[in-house]
Design a binder for these strands. Structure first.
Lengths: 208, 208
DNA sequence: GTCCGCTTCATAACAGCGTTACAGTGGGCT
DNA sequence: AGCCCACTGTAACGCTGTTATGAAGCGGAC
């Protein structure tokens, strides 16, 4: 029943948006009563918490699927592409994980956020390899840089979601430019950055 | 009454957060009945819309208060500082303006978003002056760059709000680094960028 | 002055929400 | 068999946004 409630919750959320997620709606979809929510989760916010944990897991799976290769800048670009692809594929879940969406009063705990921070290990390692490979400056600070990149990726994902990135330059164009400029500012030659970004974003699922 | 309801709404929102904003609570605070909301606004979402319009206005006032000076990169940095200061001063309003917060079912219309996009005119003009002054590359695209900067500013503001920017490097450090790297990638020499960012963020209200 | 019309507000109600108290109901273990 | 415990259906409480209804006040016309 627990599994079934979570599955229905994910389905209702993706099909009907955050407003459609209610205890009574869930009970109807799962062919049970609202009590099932309280025996298995305790409250609706706790059910949402379970949803976020699965969301973090799926996010981590995508990120870990990025293969290590001999061009760390391309690898970093691919990680960014995966980030955007996840944000688009699971808009409403992403909004809860990183966008501050409360969704029935649920708010992230420090422990929840730790799961999000844990994902940053991968881009930070990629940045370290960029430094080791001589692409980024030797005195660059991976911890600071990964935070900057995190802000850029989240800002892009959410502004796109909310509808602010319409017009001349779409989100894909902005994404490529941001990664390119990020690498250049970190020390990568412009031509090399252009090549690696194209290679990284071309690999795997396009965020489009 | 209309004014009074809006004032009380802004107060309740800032004091009690989004969850505290309800028609009955508003009616009690403004010493009237819930009907007042419907005669003056039609619905609660429409009242929220009125709140957002005032939010956009206050945002624009802050941005327009940034004085033009002979260092366009510093001016750009100051604009970024003002952006962060506004996001922190009016967290919940900002979350509705740019963060996709629904707040009683309200969602932005294209017209609403146009008010947000209008604010971007100022940083875009600053970027143009950076190009004209020879600080940024002559072939830089202001429209693309301002979108990149927008993403960075929003990502920083919201990740800070949600609580993801704790630890070694706080939001102020990340902000300075992002603007610096943004300028460097656009063509500004690192030393000049460092100086201008320090000057721009030092001016006016600190985002801290 | 008196009446009309219009705006505005108070009361009460409806449907929905999360949540809870209570009364089973079923299956597994002794 | 008997017992216990996890589970669930029903109904209710207090909250939400919203609406129907009626009353009150105000401004202008005659």
């Amino acid at each position: 029943m627990r599994r079934r409630l979570l599955n229905e919750a994910a389905r209702v959320l993706s099909e009907g948006g955050p407003a459609a997620l209610s205890a009574r709606r869930l009970a109807k979809e799962a062919e049970t009563s609202t009590m099932a929510v309280y025996t298995h989760f305790g409250s609706m916010p706790e059910l949402v918490r379970a949803l976020t944990r699965e969301g973090f897991d799926r996010f981590l799976v995508r990120v870990e699927a990025v293969a290590r290769n001999d061009d760390p800048v391309a690898e970093l670009a691919e990680l960014c592409g995966v980030y955007q692809a996840f944000a688009r594929a699971e808009r409403d879940v992403y909004a809860v994980l990183f966008g501050g969406s409360t969704l029935l009063g649920f708010t992230l705990t420090d422990e929840d956020r730790a799961m999000g921070v844990a994902v940053l290990r991968h881009p930070r390692d990629a940045i370290r390899r960029c430094i080791a490979a001589g692409r980024f400056r030797r005195d660059a600070d991976p911890d600071l840089l990964v935070r900057q990149l995190f802000c850029q990726m989240h800002g892009l994902a959410q502004l796109d979601h909310v509808g602010y990135l319409v017009g001349a330059h779409g989100p894909d164009r902005v994404l490529a430019a941001m990664i390119h400029d990020f690498a250049v500012a970190a020390g990568d030659p412009a031509a090399a950055a252009t090549r690696s970004v194209a290679a990284g974003l071309g690999r795997g699922d396009s965020p489009a």
